[in-house]
Amino acid sequence: MRKKSPTPLILLTLLIAPAWAQQLSLTIGNAVAAQTYRTKNMQFVFRVNGCADLSKAQVNAAAEGIVGDARRTTPLHLIPGQPAGVYAINPEWGNDGKWVVAISTTCLNETAGAIVPVVGIGFIRESTQLLPHAPSQSEIEAALKAFTQPAH
């Protein structure tokens, strides 16, 4: 049986994300969202929401990709922005292949995550997954398998 496209659900999740303000979550945006010229060449930016003490938040990100037939993982260096809790993702994975960025964050006892397909100088909002947990390996593999370049 053909599975239904998850796009409307993902879009709805993205739109209501700010409403979860009390829960730990991530908001993903284009580089312009950081409102500073310093991030203009970044792939995208993200924000940690719902963490009462951001100094205790832990954030990790890795680029997960397929180049030719090879599976690649590249740990990413996060660039902290303003205000606290905003980070920029610098493209460190080269131009070849298809890639997603897997992000996880913990704050106190909560965990949240995201899988963000990247393309060109941005990300594919419609395929971005916001998760109430750190991305699992199977979720990352599924996202890479489902990765399709957006139509222009």
Partner: peptide
Amino acid sequence: KDELAWTW
């Protein structure tokens, strides 16, 4: 605007 920019 600053909040909306996260969706732009």
